[in-house]
């Protein structure tokens, strides 16, 4: 399988505190890695570093072998869509305006954008909320808006920080369905989760982080054994 994301010898530190310590892994095209670990293990920091929001101390991050975070950052960014744990919506934009901002940023055609907005808005049951500002929406609805934003473009890499956080049971099922569609069309996904049961049907591999280091990694089917072994120690 072709490698899509390559992270090698990644280190992140703020002053003397090491947040990520020598992280290396690869994510294949069309596959899914679940990042697991306790709170503060470094999952979100890793996501932010891959996004380019958090500065790294050293190491290399490359997408599709040619887009390097350090040497071609603007092109590199075009290959990623990110869903943060907490919605990052702007108070000044309505839900629809957020979708348009995403569409324009990923250079989507207006017709295609409208078609996708229609599809996802119906799936997430957000009809009638398109012209509302984020403050007028419930937390779950805001999360749905943020999720739709990232689902709109066709990008090779999706980064999802806690995918099902704040979504109701129907939305979770629908989101899972979309993710499977995306994976089938070749999108790779790196996600963080505390609910491994939920992503077991989607993820192929896991990476367990502890205090900024990779503790274990492997096939998702091996996870239970490793978890039990870790608990026994």
């Amino acid at each position: 399988m072709r490698k899509l994301l390559e992270v090698s010898n990644l280190n992140v530190a703020i002053n003397d505190t090491k947040l990520l310590n020598n992280i290396s892994f690869t994510l294949d095209k069309g596959s899914v890695i679940a990042l697991v670990g306790h709170n503060g293990a470094g999952k979100s920091t890793l996501m932010k570093t891959i996004m380019g929001i958090q500065d790294k101390t050293n190491g290399e991050i490359t997408i599709d072998g040619e887009f390097n975070l350090d040497t071609s950052f603007l092109d590199y960014k075009k290959n990623i869509a990110f869903i943060p744990e907490e919605p990052l919506l702007m108070s000044e934009l309505t839900a629809m305006q957020h979708f348009q901002l995403y569409g324009k940023s990923y250079q989507m055609e207006e017709m295609e954008l409208k078609k996708r907005i229609g599809k996802y808005v119906e799936g997430f049951e957000l009809q009638g909320k398109l012209n509302e500002y984020p403050e007028s929406l419930s937390k779950g609805m805001r999360q749905k808006v943020q999720t739709i934003c990232a689902m709109l473009p066709d990008v090779p890499l999706l980064l999802i920080d806690e995918p099902f956080m704040g979504l109701d049971i129907y939305a979770v099922d629908y989101f899972e369905e979309i993710l499977k569609e995306k994976i089938a069309s070749g999108t790779s996904i790196l996600l963080t989760t505390h609910q491994l049961k939920r992503v077991k049907n989607i993820a192929d591999q896991f990476i367990m982080l502890q205090e900024g280091k990779i503790l274990h990694k492997g096939q998702i089917s091996e996870f239970e054994t490793i978890k039990r072994r870790s608990e026994d120690l």
Partner: peptide, 24 residues
């Protein structure tokens, strides 16, 4: 925020979308 015109979808151009981002 309460102005109805602000809630209308954007004309799908960089100029219009960026104008709102800059104002914000």
């Amino acid at each position: 925020q309460n102005r109805a015109s602000r809630k209308r979808p954007f004309a799908y151009t960089d100029v219009v979308i960026h104008k709102r981002l800059w104002l914000q």
